[in-house]
Write a protein that binds this DNA or RNA. Structure first.
Length: 419
RNA sequence: GCGACCAUAGCUCAGUUGGUUAGAGCGCCGGUUUGUGGUACCGGAGGUCGCGGGUUCGAGCCCCGUUGGUCGCCCCA
């Protein structure tokens, strides 16, 4: 580039774990978001926007002070007013906060959907970033299993429309109500205590911090112990059993395929009843494409009224990696301006086309002789060349992939007095 | 926080047991050819081989450190 070293400054690098998207991946990303927005409307979910930044307490309370996310993965800092604020590491807590502070109880049950960036200070790896993006859907203020089932139908349809349902399985479990969960947890701790000597180091730490997590340990040393641990089924209250039964009945009625995974648990404490993950083996270590569950205790934990709620979130980057390359709408018209004298005419034509809702772009820089060649390499329905002959611009239609587009384009161009 | 692998032109990469002025394709810029044409050819710009030390007569290549990337563990979407 420039040899002027005096003007050179070291270019700052992108922050670790962030990404700049252009071209193919940006198209994939947009396609995922577009599909989500379409399906969300089909299910009557309202679009919501919530802040990227929240008081730290919103996440510290809801996620539990001791979880890794809170203790070492949050982007938290004091703002200039001395308030501790945090870049959101997830959507649910912020939406729950908004539900309380805006009095959205009046709309309960409230079905909302959103998407956007989230931040977690983690080691980046495949399908894992410090700034990542999720789709999110929540039903607030409903204790009905119909809400769980509908959310899963929504998720299932989204994956189908993205064309990745074949490589992805819905795995489902219940964590029961508070009573069931506590009883199961106690039984699990007892079971694992009995095998303390054979557990991996990681799982010994989990035993104190988060015993449920031993169940889905990847360590082969843990597997026999985890596999022989009791399922929750024996501890489910009648109510909890009925609830899970209603959810699965709904899925069956709607033709949503699912598998029971009695080892599927949640790290976060506020989850109750339904827990689910859509998993794939096509993303390396990142198996989960979409996950969620019921979090009846959360809103109360944030100081709101007791409110039942259920929701899910899905990583946009992960979905974008799984889908086939989306078709991108070609440009309607590309203009090859083969003589600088014809540039004003090209500008006039391009503007007129755009005013008529026809996309247009022009190649008018670089070697005049090569502009046509460049234009042919651009994906456009209609290629037109502009040359300067006998003191005026001459427009020629050179190649066409869609006659109906050409008809519209010709009408505009002819109306300008060309041809 | 821990581990493994990687780092050469704008991009994708080659570079032989260490041996003169570090190469290719694509892209970019210019020119010739073609002129109803997505062709072919010629030329050009662009690299302190991530950065810093060390070994050596000599390092893109070997050693150490460092930064960054990738993948995995932990955790998690």
């Amino acid at each position: 580039m420039s040899k002027d070293k005096s003007a050179k400054i070291p270019t700052p690098q992108a922050v670790r774990g962030t990404q700049d998207m252009l071209g193919d991946f940006a198209d994939r990303f947009a396609h995922v978001v577009g599909a989500f927005d379409r399906v969300r409307r089909l299910y009557g979910f309202k679009r919501v926007e919530v802040p990227v930044i929240e008081p730290t307490a919103v996440f510290a309370r809801s996620l539990g002070e001791t979880t890794d996310v809170v203790s070492k993965e949050m982007y938290s800092f004091e703002d200039r007013g001395g308030e501790s604020v945090t870049l959101r590491p997830e959507f649910t807590a912020g939406i729950a906060r908004a539900y309380i502070t805006n009095g959205w109880q009046q709309f309960a049950p409230l079905k909302v959907a959103t998407h956007g960036p989230l931040f977690r200070y983690e080691r980046p790896q495949k399908g894992r970033y410090r700034q990542f993006h999720q789709l999110d859907a929540e039903v607030l203020g409903s204790d009905s299993p119909l809400a769980d089932a509908e959310l899963l139908m929504f998720a299932d349809q989204l994956l189908k429309q993205l064309g990745i349902a074949d490589g992805v399985t819905l795995t489902l479990n219940t964590l029961g109500d508070a009573e069931s969960r506590d009883a199961w947890r106690a039984a699990l701790v007892e079971h694992f205590e009995g095998h303390r000597a054979s557990l991996s180091e990681d799982s010994l730490a989990r035993l104190d911090k988060n015993p449920l997590r031993i169940l889905d340990s990847k360590d082969p040393q843990d597997r026999p112990i985890a596999d022989s641990a009791p399922d929750i089924d024996a501890f489910l209250t009648g109510e909890a059993q009925d609830f899970f039964g209603a959810v699965t009945a709904g899925l069956d009625a709607a033709g949503v395929a699912w598998e029971r995974n009695a080892r599927l648990v949640r790290g976060l404490d506020y989850y109750r009843h339904t827990a689910f993950e859509f998993v794939t083996d096509r993303l390396g270590a990142q198996g989960t494409v979409l996950g969620g569950g019921r979090y009846d205790g959360l809103i109360e934990a944030l100081g709101g009224p007791p409110t039942a709620a259920v929701g899910w979130a899905a990583g946009i980057e992960r979905l974008a990696m799984l889908i086939d390359e989306p078709k991108v709408d070609p440009l309607n018209v590309i203009l090859a301006v083969e003589d600088d004298l014809a540039i004003p005419a090209a500008q006039r034509i391009a503007t007129a086309l755009r005013l008529h809702d026809l996309s247009a772009d022009m190649i008018a820089t670089g070697s005049a002789r090569k502009r046509y060649d460049k234009a042919t390499k651009i994906n456009a329905h209609v290629l037109m060349s502009l040359r300067w002959i006998d003191d005026k611009a001459v427009v020629r239609t050179q190649s066409v992939t869609h006659d109906d587009v050409l008809a519209q384009v010709s009408a505009v161009v002819d109306g300008l007095g060309f041809h």
